[in-house]
């Protein structure tokens, strides 16, 4: 635990003593604030004109804070995270490799799992701080809104954390692959995008036969889609597979990072 704590503090200081944390925090806060303000403004205007979403003169559904402000905000922010999280995690191992300080870690009497976990927790804390302003917007909505759907709004916020933490695990794995931070950035962004968009491919594939066994490839792809699981959480319909999916992504990529970093010890 002491080792994890030491690595955690070192990495966290590293973030805040360099411009990285401030660039990320400033960028994300400005983007999320702008988006929130636009959605809020639109909501205020539209609710003054019509009482619901209309098709052919009939109200198909009423305007709600959960569906028309927080839902779109959460979904759009999750896309921004694909770009911002790799920026946070790209240096974690790549910098060590480039500055040759990795050898110190490899030869020190510590487990690689502790190193991975310490670095991961540091990035998680930065992402947590980054997402706090979204919580402020949520509180404003809950304070000024009449009858907001608290459960849905909160579960969407929780989902945003899960997306950020999953992308951080992918980012740390990407960083453990290369000493080039730019490559680590793009590898993380591409894997993140793949996980987001893989559900789209489900439309064109269906049940396939492998070794005379039927496999619903479309459903498998949907279940691999980060956006699909995240959408469930944002809508307030949390299936067991949703939190399990995010946890498995985090566990898999952290273990993969450990295995990858450990293998460098013997090369």
């Amino acid at each position: 635990m002491r080792v994890i704590g030491a690595i955690f503090w070192k990495e966290l200081k590293g973030y805040f003593l360099s411009p990285v944390a401030y660039v990320v925090l400033t960028g994300f806060t400005a983007i999320s604030g702008w988006l929130f303000y636009q959605l809020l403004n639109y909501f205020l205007r539209i609710t003054n004109i019509v009482s619901g979403y209309m098709v052919k003169g009939q109200i198909m559904r009423e305007w709600t804070i959960a569906d028309d402000i927080m839902g779109p905000l959460y979904k759009n922010l999750s896309l921004f995270l694909i770009i911002l999280v790799p920026g946070v995690t790209m240096r974690l191992f790549s910098e060590e490799k480039k500055l040759k300080t990795e050898e110190l870690l490899l030869t020190a009497p510590i487990r690689m799992g502790q190193v991975v976990l310490g670095k991961y927790l540091a990035s998680v804390v930065l992402l947590f701080l980054m997402l706090i302003p979204v919580g402020v917007y949520m509180s404003l909505i809950l304070y000024y809104g009449s009858e907001p759907d608290l459960g849905t709004v909160l579960s969407g916020y929780l989902g945003l954390f899960l997306v950020a933490f999953s992308l951080a695990a992918i980012g740390i794995f990407a960083s453990s692959l290369t000493e080039n931070q730019i490559i680590a950035f793009f590898v993380c962004a591409v894997i993140g995008l793949l996980f987001f968009s893989v559900g789209l491919a489900a439309r064109s594939v269906g049940v396939v036969s492998i070794f005379s066994r039927q496999l619903d490839l479309g459903e498998l792809l949907r279940q691999l889609s980060l956006f699909e699981h995240y959408s469930h959480i944002v809508a307030g319909r949390i299936q067991l597979t949703d939190p399990v999916f995010f946890l498995l992504i985090i566990i898999f990529f952290l273990f993969a990072s450990r295995i990858n970093a450990e293998s460098a010890r013997w090369s």
């Binding site: 809020l40 909501f43 205020l44 559904r61 305007w63 709600t64 009449s146 009858e147």
Partner: peptide, 15 residues
């Protein structure tokens, strides 16, 4: 079941 409508009541100054 449908989501019941919700509204926000803030002034122009608060916006």
């Amino acid at each position: 079941h449908t989501r019941k409508p919700s509204r926000i009541f803030i002034t122009a100054g608060q916006t």
